[in-house]
Design a protein around this nucleic acid. Structure first.
Lengths: 186, 186
DNA sequence: GTCTATACGAGGATAGAC
DNA sequence: GTCTATCCTCGTATAGAC
C-alpha cells in the first residue's frame, strides 16, 4: 500500500479528462492548450508528446463514442427493421446517452461544428447521426418517414443536453423524451 | 441610369454578406478576418473601421434575426395560447426560416456555441430558442408538454439546415417538417 | 470619412536539449 | 517523458495617408 512501482503518469488520460470537461463547458475553439496544460501542471509542449495536434485530443474522445454507436449500429442491422426494433433502438440510444459515454456524447454534440472540420472524424460523426436512421429506413420510405426518424433520434439526443431548464430530474426528462421520440418514430 | 453619385462603398454590408457566407460554411471560429478582407479586396484594418471586433460582425447578423423573432414573439403573446395559435406560430416560424432571414437563421444555428460566448447576444439567442416555447406554454404545463413544444420548434428549425440529404425540394422538406411539428405540438 | 501600414500579444505547432 | 526556444497565424489596436 506504500510506494509502489505503479506509474502515476497516466498523463494521456488525464489530458482527455480535462479536455472533455473544458471542451464541453467552454467549447473546443475557446479552450486553449495552455489552459489544459496549466490545469494539469505541465507545459503546452508536454501535450504534444501525447497528442499530435489539438484536433487529435478531440478526435480521441469522438472515437470512443463512435465505438459505442458502432455496436448499436451493428445490432440495428442484424435483423429487418420493424417498428418495434426502431423503438428499441431509441431506448438503447437513450441508455447510451445516460451511461458512461454520455459525457462524451454531450461534448461531441456541443462541438459538432468543430468536428466537421476534422477530416478523419467527419465520417464517424456522420455514422453517429445519419447512419442510425439510414439503417432503419428502407430506401423506399417516404420523405415524411425519413424526417420523422431523424426527429425521433434528435429528440432522444437533445434530452441529453440543454434541457435542464425544463425542470424534472435527468431521468424524468430522458424517459419523457423517449416517449415522445417513440411517438414520432414511424 | 448612367454614372451617378451613388456611393458604391457599402463596404459594411459587403462585409456582412461575406461574413454570413463564411460563418455558415466554415464556422465562426474557423473563419479568419484575413479571409473576409481578402474576399473583399481590402485589408484587415478596414474591417475595424466598420466593426469594433470580429464578434461585432456576428452580433450584427444575430440582431437582424432577433428583430424578426421579436415580432413573432409579440404576436404569440398578443392572445391566450390555444393549440391553433401554437400551430400557427410554427407556420410563421417556418415562413421566417424560408424567407429573407433564413440564411441568417442558418448562420446563427450553425454557430450557437460561438454565440454563447458573446455576452450581449446570449440573451437574444435565448429569446430565439427558449422564449418562443415559454411564451406558448403555461407554467403549469407538464414536463412532456414543455418538451413537446421544444421538439416541435426544433423540428421546424432543423428542416432549415442539414436535411438536404433526405431528398425532396426545400419546400417539400419544410412542409413535411411543419406537419410533423404540428403533430408533436401539444 | 474611408482605408493602408505596421506592430503587439496569444494561439497552435515543431525541433531539439535534457 | 518533459521542457525551452522558436515560428507562423490569429484577433486586436493605433497612427496616419488619402
Amino acid at each position: 500500500m506504500a510506494a509502489d512501482t505503479r506509474r502515476r503518469t497516466d498523463t494521456r488520460s488525464e489530458i482527455q479528462r480535462v479536455a472533455l470537461t473544458r471542451f464541453t463547458q467552454d467549447g473546443y475553439d475557446k479552450t486553449s492548450l495552455r489552459e489544459i496544460a496549466e490545469d494539469l501542471g505541465v507545459t503546452k509542449a508536454a501535450l504534444y508528446y501525447h497528442f499530435r495536434t489539438k484536433e487529435d485530443i478531440l478526435e480521441s474522445l469522438v472515437t470512443d463514442v463512435g465505438a459505442s454507436i458502432e455496436e448499436l449500429l451493428t445490432w440495428v442491422q442484424s435483423a429487418p427493421s420493424t417498428r418495434e426494433r426502431r423503438v428499441e433502438m431509441l431506448r438503447r440510444l437513450a441508455t447510451l446517452a445516460r451511461g458512461g459515454v454520455g459525457d462524451m456524447m454531450r461534448c461531441v454534440q456541443q462541438n459538432e461544428v468543430a468536428l466537421a472540420a476534422l477530416p478523419r472524424t467527419v465520417d464517424l460523426v456522420h455514422r453517429y447521426k445519419d447512419d442510425l436512421w439510414r439503417a432503419c429506413m428502407p430506401p423506399e420510405a417516404t420523405l415524411e418517414d425519413r424526417l420523422r426518424a431523424r426527429v425521433a433520434i434528435m429528440t432522444v439526443l437533445v434530452a441529453n443536453r440543454g434541457t435542464a431548464d425544463l425542470g424534472g430530474t435527468d431521468d424524468e426528462r430522458s424517459e419523457t423524451a423517449l416517449r415522445i421520440a417513440s411517438d414520432v418514430m414511424p
